[in-house]
Amino acid sequence: MLELRLVQGSLLKKVLEAIKDLVNDANFDCSATGFSLQAMDSSHVALVALLLRNEGFEHYRCDRNISMGMNLGNMNKMLKCAGNDDIITLKADDGSDTVTFMFESPNQDKIADFEMKLMDIDSEHLGIPEAEYHAIVRMPSAEFARICKDLSSIGDTVVISVTKEGVKFSTKGDIGTANIVCRQNTTVDKPEEATVIEMKEPVSLTFALRYMNSFAKATPLSHTVTISLSSELPVVVEYKIEDMGYVRFYLAPKIEE
């Protein structure tokens, strides 16, 4: 028996909006500690890892570990039918091949349930070791989204370079080049508006902007984004979900030409 009641149902709606274009089908893994997902895009270049911890749910019952295969496009269709203020409850019986999404309006005057068929998906996970990163940049998520969008009108790839001067996002294309430098800035009114750069050593890596723009669809989940870079590792672009967990995107770099 599985029953997860999320008062802030809009969170789940935002999670689906963030990941549905990157991954078509995925297993949601449910255990006593939380609701999670790990899935790669079809070309094995990018990976999304989601964690929603049990304590973030108003009611969390998961009697045994289960893995529920879902088509994210179909799941998104169902979640779009929930209002932004609705409470969302996920329910599944042991051995069932369906999951039920229940939507309750805040004043309880409308209750809807949508039952979705589950699917069998080969469960393949990647082991992601804990790593030390050369540089970690924390910045406003809207700023990062803006930069990726702006650069993608000029070029297809972004070079992200961290030096003691700041973090530089560069691209080049047929019409020209663009460089955007963000310096550390902690003298802001609100902590979420700060740009904080922790650098152990300079690092410069090239990534496909198409994926970065896809990751930026998670912007509504968090005011800030954390970008962790190391020359030997895929970049990690993390959106923390307040009091609950995170959505992390991993992206393999392009090889410098």
């Binding site: 996970h125 990647l126 082991g127 770099p253 090889i255």
Partner: peptide
């Protein structure tokens, strides 16, 4: 693209 690395070059399946 040929110069795009795969995640599986960095992480192992389990």
């Amino acid at each position: 693209a040929e110069n795009q690395k795969s995640l599986t070059a960095y992480f192992d399946w389990y």
